[in-house]
Nucleic acid binder design. Structure first.
Length: 413
DNA sequence: AATCCACAGGAAGCCCGGGAAC
DNA sequence: GTTCCCGGGCTTCCTGTGGATT
């Protein structure tokens, strides 16, 4: 290549964006349309913090993309702001329990939020949990104000490590001498409270809020407001926003997904060098989002999970249909022997299969063949091609997929 | 109605690598 | 050093179960 300006060619032309960031899920808009009621309700509970009282604990439910996180953070920001202007000590701590996913980690995370103000820290491992808890109490009391702790995706944590953390946090106020604390739990699974100890349930569920899904009109409205911030004039072809809202409404009214679709569609329009986002770009985006998701998941998949996945693909191919757990395990064992990886137990492999199912890479559902047992029916779903393409980027894996003449062994099945 | 298959999936505990405190 | 913690991956052992077959 000559001295051509390689970046310039991408920088200069016809960017259709005015501000791309406004379409990202991290962006916090100044207003949240169709969530006024929820904001008000949440604020009416949390205002107690500004009066020096203890706000009630709250459970928030709603499907993904219904604005739970957004509304909570929004109100939290306002709370801090107002607290500052009134000179009231309030603290608002947000934790995503899918990322911070054990009792110990949540406690250290919260503690470190306070502690960093006075230059210490709790190590990420090493201390007994109750010591972290005591330290947390000490820190909150030293802070002395009202603390609101948000546990987002709380169902993930409870499913993984039980409700010990929630039990401890629910009696937090009786351990505090001067400060006050309240908990906001956010979940998209309505049934998860069934897993909780009744005491925890009643203590944390003092207030309950349910976020309804957006309908297509509301999503369209949200999109229009964001699009006005994100794009230059007349960039969106007519019908595009309606199409996206309709697609998102099909998926239980997921606003985040709608915004993603719009952003990715616009990006592919931009790449084409076009000046308008057309409906075709939306369909392109639909596929692109899915395939990006899959390759991202596969990239970070542990080797054993990959082996199980390949076994499912290969087994399906050999059998010409869906597999049972037992069949998949047989293929998996062969696969390990061939490639020299250690063979895990069937118990572990069923767990890996379930994980792959939850990641949406394969479909595994429990079926009963009556007298002939009860097992899981395993299918490498509609994204089969995408999965294989993604896996094939790794040479060592490619070898396994080809299975170079080793079918003989597998034919024995 | 009872049986019984082929697993599902819970519980406990091991081992390892991280670290703290003494 | 030793001894204590926590978490992740894993095994061992186990009880539970939907529904075709008996």
């Amino acid at each position: 290549m000559s001295t051509k300006d390689i970046f310039g060619q991408f920088l200069k032309p016809n960017s259709i964006f005015k501000n791309r960031e406004t379409l990202r899920s991290t962006y916090m808009p100044e207003e949240l349309p169709h969530r006024e009621k929820e904001i008000e309700q949440l604020a009416s509970v949390l205002v107690a913090a500004l009066r020096g009282e203890t706000p009630s604990n709250i459970f928030i439910y709603g499907k993904t993309g219904t604005g739970k996180t957004c509304v909570t953070k929004f109100v939290g920001n306002q709370l801090i702001k107002t607290g500052k202007s009134l000179n009231k000590p309030v603290e608002f701590i947000y934790i995503n329990c899918q990322v911070v996913d054990t009792q110990y980690r949540v406690l250290t995370h919260i503690t470190n939020q306070f502690i960093k103000k006075w230059d210490e820290r709790v190590p990420f491992t090493g201390w007994p949990t109750d010591e972290v808890y005591s330290k947390l109490m000490e820190c909150i009391d030293r802070f002395g104000g009202a603390v609101t702790i948000v546990l987002d995706e709380i169902d993930k944590l409870v499913m993984k490590s039980g409700d010990d953390l929630l039990y401890n946090l629910s009696r937090i106020n009786s351990d505090l001498k001067v400060a006050k604390a309240s908990i906001i739990g956010i979940s998209n699974d309505l049934r998860f409270t069934e897993l909780l100890d009744p005491r925890v349930k009643s203590s944390l569920g003092e207030e309950e809020m349910i976020f309804p899904s957006y309908n297509a009109d509301e999503i369209k409205d949200i999109l229009e407001k964001r699009a006005a911030l994100a794009f230059k004039e007349d960039v969106i072809a007519p019908g595009v926003l309606s199409l996206i809202s309709a697609l998102a409404a099909q998926e239980h009214g997921d606003a985040r997904r709608a915004l993603d679709l719009l952003r990715v569609a616009a990006e592919s329009a931009e790449r084409d060098g076009g000046t308008r986002v057309e409906e075709s770009h939306v369909y392109e985006a639909l596929e692109r989002i899915e395939s990006d998701r899959i390759s991202e998941v596969l990239r970070t998949l542990p080797t054993q999970s990959k082996l199980v996945l390949i076994s499912a693909i290969k087994g399906e191919e050999l059998k010409g249909g869906s597999l049972t757990t037992g069949e998949a395990y047989e293929v998996y064992k062969q696969m390990c022997n061939i490639s020299g990886y250690p063979v895990l137990t069937e118990r572990r492999v069923t767990e890996l299969i379930s994980e792959l199912d939850m990641l949406g890479i394969i479909e595994a559902r429990v079926v009963s063949f009556g007298k002939y047992g009860r097992t899981k029916e395993i299918k490498v779903g509609s994204q089969r091609g995408e999965v294989i393409a993604s896996l094939s980027r790794e040479p060592s894996i490619l070898e396994l997929l080809d299975m170079k003449g080793k079918q003989k062994k597998l034919d024995a099945l």
